[in-house]
Design a protein around this nucleic acid. Structure first.
Lengths: 246, 246
DNA sequence: CGATACGTTGACGGAAATCAACCCCGGTGG
DNA sequence: CCACCGGGGTTGATTTCCGTCAACGTATCG
């Protein structure tokens, strides 16, 4: 009998936010064999071109997936937080078509593909749930396209912050509409396809509007309704099971 | 014994482009019960907010998924061609977070979710293959983000055309580097997050560069290497099984 | 043959990029 | 203890890519 791994706590919370888990399924998740590791800030966890045989669960920290264009511009494709398996797709797409990198020092737990396959074999509903998770991820990418493609900078930033708040709340990392956002403005710029200078200006504007406030690296949402409105934020695309408190 | 449906031909070709199919699997796919339908151009096939109980296979035509922002701007999220199941995600995400629309008159084949589930139950490898297909779709969304976010208009258009050519070739719709592209410049604009005016200019530039030529609605790629280069196109993200002739 | 949709062109405007400072703060080492 | 350093945040001046507007050409079709 394998030990119960507390590092799966956030993962279980996250999965419970998108579907119901039975006690057996929870227990099976907690018994997943993990290879723990910590990485420093700005370090690649998996690089474009790698072929993976394990998936990376974020236990604590902030990571992102990104691509770099020929002109050397970085585009961040998604942010990843506690509870995310940031490269679940590697289960069926062995070659990485992008890189995964730590934005701040991260605690990671690697899970062998074979162990995941065994888990899904024994618990088909978990297989479906992981599939569902990757589909939600794809929905987030779609919104990212809309955001980057068609929304002006102010709306764009508001939308991104709304998404982060809702996702962080699902893993209990939001308290009283405030959460830790330990990334730089340059990171946000690469996520929103803006320049760091413009992110700075837009951030100031959101503060002047009384929607948000920064206390060091923690972001406090002062006017949630206002932020949702200026961000045109509709959480449907996150496909949460519990629609409360949105 | 159900009849064999020729409408699944492109689907089978497409799946074979990303993995091997056994004769039994092919036969099972061909026996899928289909509800055939044709839709006119510019008509929604599935709309945002709908809850689906079937998936939509494109038999012939050109479709797209899109979202509309509060300011009324449309962002096309993906193009869909023969062989694509354009809303496979509805299997696990019942509420549509975007719309699916025909860009030209389309022949469609709807497949009940229950029939797909039965198919995957009897053929687990097909289940994995469908999952893989949605993961590749997600990879395409990621490239779409990079394209829209960080590439200048000329590169952006070249990249999109490269992607379309490779995907169309997988379903045998490319002959001698030429294919039917029956969409308007306004459609391309909404896909690339540009204005239709600018698409027109960029399109002219690609023609002046000798990379492409239009003969009515068919696009001929005159310089495939050149187009790939100006589009910074690397087909890795399409995760094709056969890497030949890229 | 007019209606209509799509492609094309030119003039102008604007949102955001770029460039270049400067500030602030925490860390570090002489 | 303080000078130094470097990363990140902030600001202003200037530029640029692309959007918007408006007109006109062109092809298809009932």
């Amino acid at each position: 009998m394998e030990a119960i791994h507390p590092q799966t706590g956030a993962l279980i919370r996250k999965l419970e936010s998108i579907a119901h888990l039975t006690p057996e399924e929870t227990a099976a998740l907690q018994r997943l064999p993990l290879r723990l590791k910590t990485v420093a800030a700005d370090q690649d966890i998996v690089s474009e071109g790698d072929t993976a045989s394990e998936c990376c669960l974020i236990v604590a920290g902030f990571a992102c997936r990104y691509n770099v264009t020929a002109e050397g511009k970085r585009q961040i494709l998604s942010f990843h937080i506690s509870g995310d398996i940031a490269d679940l797709q590697s289960l069926h797409l062995t070659v990485m078509d992008h890189s995964l990198s730590a934005l701040i020092p991260c605690k990671l737990a690697f899970i062998q593909h074979d162990d995941l396959r065994a888990l899904m074999g024994g618990h088909p509903r978990l297989g479906d749930l992981f599939w569902r998770d990757t589909l939600i991820e794809a929905a987030v990418f779609r919104q990212w396209v809309v955001n980057v493609g068609r929304r002006p900078a102010l709306t764009r930033m508001a939308h991104l912050l709304c998404e982060l708040l809702v996702r962080l709340r699902a893993v209990a990392l939001v308290e009283d509409h405030a959460f830790n956002l330990p990334v730089t403005q340059a990171d946000l710029a690469d996520a929103m396809a803006l320049s760091n200078v413009h992110v700075n200006r837009v951030s100031q504007e959101l503060r002047k509007m009384g929607l948000i406030a920064f206390q060091g690296k923690t972001l406090r949402v002062l006017d949630w309704e206002g932020l949702k409105t200026t961000g045109e934020f509709d959480p449907t695309y996150l496909h949460l099971a519990k629609k409360d408190a949105l």
